[in-house]
């Protein structure tokens, strides 16, 4: 069973001479319950693809099916609802709301999903931040902020976690710690993980590696021997 299926997925920005094709007729199948890494250099279109998968943006041409549901036919209201119910996002720059504490940032997500404060606390505990729940983002380190961001994403038990370069702004040790958290969540829970990175080493922890270049999928390969995060170095 595929989690996402894209057909002829195309995204262009601008017009005329300024036209840029970010995604070029992509046909892709992303399996469910796998740890998937989309690997590509800067400008390869991986973030654009992630945005499309997460209903954060709309394609210029083509379709995306999420478990056989055509999500490109959704209007904005339905897309919002879909994101709230099925998708957990982890961003490179954390994107925590600066006016809210760690707990409140997670509660933002649980409240929208109709869950309780204890769900938010459990999520923070799962990422090892039980002691820092009342701290504001400005009072947390980069790694802690990213873990709050992961807690916010997993607290509502999404079907898929979409992670956009989650280690991009972190040092090696913190990056490994974040990857371990993600791996743990994937192995313990029912969420699929789609992670994008430009780091070939990180791709070694994935079950499936999708390589992109210039807006096209170059290869899709299964990794039969995924490494644990502690085994990779960069």
């Amino acid at each position: 069973m595929n989690l996402f299926t894209t057909s002829n997925l195309t995204k262009t920005y601008g017009e005329g001479n300024a036209k840029v094709t970010a995604l070029d007729a992509i046909n892709l199948e992303i399996p469910a319950n796998k740890f998937v890494v989309i690997l590509g250099a800067s400008g390869s279109g991986k973030s654009t693809l992630l945005n499309m998968l997460g209903c954060m943006d709309t394609p210029t041409v083509g379709e995306i099916a999420f478990s056989d549901i055509n999500i490109t036919s959704f209007n904005k209201h339905k897309m919002t609802h879909f994101r709230g119910e099925n998708i957990g996002f982890v961003f490179q720059s954390y994107n925590l709301l600066p006016d809210l504490t760690a707990l409140e940032n997670v509660e933002f997500s649980t409240e929208l999903a109709g869950l309780t404060r204890s769900d938010a606390l459990n999520a923070l505990a799962a990422v090892g931040l039980s002691e820092r729940v009342n701290h504001y983002p400005a009072e947390l380190s980069g790694g802690e902020q990213q873990r709050v961001s992961i807690a916010r994403a997993i607290a509502k038990n999404p079907k898929v976690l979409l992670c956009d370069e989650p280690t991009g702004a972190l040092d090696y040790n913190t990056g490994i710690m974040v990857l371990e958290v993600l791996k743990k969540i994937h192995s313990e829970g029912s969420s699929s993980v789609v992670l994008i990175t430009h780091n070939r080493e990180i791709a070694k922890i994935a079950d499936v590696i999708i390589t992109m270049r210039s807006g096209k999928v170059q290869s899709v390969s299964e990794n039969s021997m995924p490494l644990s995060p502690s085994e990779v170095t960069w």
């Binding site: 919002t80 709230g84 119910e85 961003f91 929208l112």
Partner: peptide
């Protein structure tokens, strides 16, 4: 703008 984007991304209705 970015915070609004995050809220929207997390599924907050307009």
């Amino acid at each position: 703008r970015r915070q609004i984007g995050v809220m929207k991304a997390l599924g907050a209705p307009n």
